[in-house]
Simulated assay, not measured.
Amino acid sequence: MNLALDDYISIYIHQSDLIFTSYIKSKLAPLNIAPEQNLIMMLLWKQDGLSQNEVAEKLDKDKTNIARMAHCLEQKGFINRVSCPNDRRIQRLYLTEAGRQLSQHVIPIAEEFHETLCKNISEEELLQLRSILSKMRENLK
């Protein structure tokens, strides 16, 4: 089997992801937050006080990467990292007032992005897409 470049679904998915990321990055830039950092913030807006390890698990990201992003978010004044009194290795992430207020600007952007991305796509098609991507992810585990 000799596939042409356009035949590789992984390349198509990667190129799509680059477009998605570029779009959301431009929308979030004025708020001084990167798309990856925003994923942490979205988790904390749902459940404040998660540990860095819990965030890493939920986002399926490397713990070191999460620690670096948390440090950046702390530098920007959006979160505080607090060591657990019982176990100093555990860092919990807590929203600051600025971090809480950021949600009022970011959530409408995230919702608009979702609506734009899913325009003219049925719920059934979205479920099918999610199912197919889940199968692809499982194939690589």
Rank of each mutant, 00 (worst) to 15 (best):
I66L: 03
K76N: 01
Q104G: 04
A4D: 13
S22H: 15
R89A: 09
A67L: 07
L127Q: 15
T21L: 13
E115L: 15
C118E: 09
N53D: 14
T21V: 07
W45Y: 08
I13G: 04
R68S: 09
L126K: 15
R130S: 08
Q52P: 04
N80W: 03
T116K: 09
L117S: 03
K76S: 04
M41D: 01
L59K: 07
P85M: 11
D62C: 14
L18H: 04
I79Q: 00
Q91G: 03
Q91H: 07
N2D: 11
K46Q: 13
G49C: 04
D17T: 07
Q128A: 04
D87A: 11
P35F: 11
N65H: 13
Q101F: 08
N32Q: 10
E123L: 10
R68C: 03
N53Q: 11
I79M: 02
Q15I: 12
D6I: 14
H14E: 11
E112Q: 15
K25N: 05
V82S: 03
R130V: 13
I79F: 01
Q47K: 15
G49S: 08
F113A: 02
E111W: 03
R130L: 13
L5A: 10
C118T: 15
D62A: 07
G49W: 00
N2R: 12
D62K: 08
D7P: 07
R89C: 09
S16M: 10
V55H: 01
E57G: 12
L95F: 02
C118N: 14
E54F: 05
P85L: 10
G49Q: 05
N32Y: 08
Q37A: 07
H105K: 12
E74C: 06
S22G: 13
E97A: 13
V82C: 08
D60C: 14
L31R: 02
E97Q: 10
D60G: 12
F113W: 04
